[in-house]
């Protein structure tokens, strides 16, 4: 039974296949309206989420399927101490596919190892969030028309930001990728990401603390939020949270065809004034996430022989 824990579980050919499928859904939504009729998706969310859970649910509804939701560990048997494995073994009896978010790293792998239906990791702590990366990749494909020869600036929390790790690893597989890593010293990209994803692929990267200096050379600026929930120490969070704020003024230094991405939710790191800039793509990412989740749900259900 195939599950998707990490975006690297998908080959570059499969990424192409999914982005092509998503583009076809955008062009012909009616053709997909009943593809998953009478199939059920469980969204198991052990930690809060707005867009990811609703995106999965909207995706399944638009494919003609049904959704069963568990939102919040407090309303589930997890509050009674039930293990992830037992929860999954139970839920598999009710549904055809599962999307799961859990605060602990590796929980999605535990789920997949105990599931009899496909499991999609909807975020496991600071570890992986593959469908966010799929949303990012579709946005890049639609806006830049290619995956190769792009210079991407990642800005903010590059240490705990799972979306950064995943997208950096995914883009490392394409020729000509260059990364500019913009972060405070304390939130630099972990060395294991460089060693395991960037260095073997020969990806060129530079590290800086200066956002404005980096802007002119970027094709894509990927902003991130400093996440309070990843810090054990409140003082560190408060010191670092507003280190980078993208403003309309700073955007003047960016190329005309640069796009701004953000996995959302945003706090202060992108000024609301930037939203009106045609280069701002973060709300497009949200919509693209739904199309890619539709494509992924269909792919996994097809592979499982359920549709």
């Amino acid at each position: 039974m195939r599950s998707i824990i990490d975006v690297l579980d998908l080959s570059t050919e499969e990424i192409e296949e999914l982005t092509a499928c998503a583009q076809d859904i955008i062009a012909n939504p009616d053709a997909y309206a009943d593809v998953c009729a009478r199939k059920k998706l469980a969204t198991l969310f052990f930690e809060p989420s707005t867009r990811t859970r609703m995106s999965f649910e909207a995706a399944m509804y638009e494919l003609g399927g049904h959704v069963i939701t568990m939102a919040g560990a407090a309303s589930s048997s997890a509050a009674k101490g039930e293990s992830v494995a037992d929860t999954i073994k139970t839920v598999c009896n009710y549904v055809d596919i599962i999307a799961m978010r859990h605060p602990k790293e590796g929980a999605a792998l535990v789920a997949a190892n105990n599931a009899t239906v496909p499991v999609i990791n909807a975020g496991d702590g600071g570890h992986c969030h593959p469908t966010q990366t799929l949303a990012d990749l579709l946005t890049i494909k639609l806006e830049k028309k290619r995956f190769d020869n792009l210079t991407i600036g990642f800005c903010g929390d590059l240490k705990f930001g799972r979306t950064v790790h995943s997208l950096a690893a995914a883009m490392a597989r394409y020729p000509g990728t260059k990364l500019v890593l913009i972060s405070p010293e304390e939130l630099k990209l972990p060395s294991y990401v460089k060693r395991n994803a960037l260095n073997p692929a020969g990806v060129k990267y530079t590290q800086t603390t200066d956002l404005e200096e980096a802007l002119p050379e970027l094709d894509i600026l990927y902003m991130t939020r400093v996440q309070r929930e990843r810090f054990f120490n409140e003082e560190d969070y408060l010191r670092l949270k507003d280190r980078y704020i993208l403003t309309a003024e700073k955007m003047k230094k960016a190329p005309e065809d640069m796009i701004v991405m953000h996995p959302l939710p945003r706090v202060n790191e992108i000024s609301v004034a930037v939203d009106d800039d045609p280069r701002a793509c973060y709300f497009k990412q949200v919509l693209n996430g739904k199309y890619m989740r539709m494509a992924l749900i269909m792919k996994l259900l097809k592979e499982a022989g359920k549709i």
């Binding site: 293990s83 602990k104 790293e105 590796g106 929980a107 535990v110 702590g125 570890h127 395991n196």
Partner: peptide, 29 residues
């Protein structure tokens, strides 16, 4: 932050990578 820190029955499994052993679940070295 690893799932093994809260699920007592879960076996701790490490995989040999190029830079040493890493947790199968969270990739911590």
């Amino acid at each position: 932050r690893c799932i093994t820190s809260v699920e007592q029955e879960l076996k701790h499994v490490f995989l040999l990578r190029s830079d040493g052993y890493r947790c199968m679940y969270c990739e911590t070295k």
